[in-house]
Amino acid sequence: MTTEAVATAADLDIVACHCCGQVCQHAAGDICCVRCGTHLHRRKRDSLSRTWALLLAAMILYVPANLLPIMRTGSLFSSQDNTILSGVVELWRNGSWDLAVIVFVASILVPLLKFAALLVLLISVQMGKDWRTLGRARLFRLIENIGYWSMLDVFVVTLLVALVHFQKLSRVDPGPGVVYFAVVVVLTMLASMAFDPRLIWDTAAVARKHADD
């Protein structure tokens, strides 16, 4: 493996400032970046427990986010509750299959992918596996980069609430589901920010060392 030859900052007793990137000597104890004064640490603090907490909270709130209506459309004679899934189905039936696919990916696939990916990352790191390190590193970068597109449905509801407001004739009101859904997206973003991808490589290196002994 080519990865054997790589020197890590932890080996060399140096650390990069997470604010400005400045490389600093890291002896024991508390130190601050020589350039910007940010408090330095080698790894994100309590990364695993913070990620678990945020991820579990997001997964619990994901249930009401999908079951409760995200908006209520009403006209003179009837009113109808829309969930995230029914919104996708409605787009599909009206012939906008392309937008239906986009909303399905952003609102349903991306959050589920994020849950699954973070679970895989957390569990594999905690079990100390030397398993597909590059693949897991890529998986983490993927969910970090696409996660915020899940806010799509929240913005759709916001705009429709403002636009469809014709007194009693026709109106759209936000449902409780949209609040839960917005919180879920924020929590999953915070969870992926709390996860420290360096742990993937740390634990893999330890596992390899054990295998060699």
Binding site: L91, N94, A106, Y148, L152, F155, V156
Partner: peptide
């Protein structure tokens, strides 16, 4: 620089643009 680093991931104008498109098609 600290503020810019922190708010970067939370600025979502591009998502809103797509959201507007979806809202327009729905309405």
């Amino acid at each position: 620089m600290r503020i810019l680093t922190a708010i970067g991931p939370w600025s979502m104008v591009e998502v809103f643009l797509l959201g507007t498109l979806v809202a327009v098609v729905k309405a």
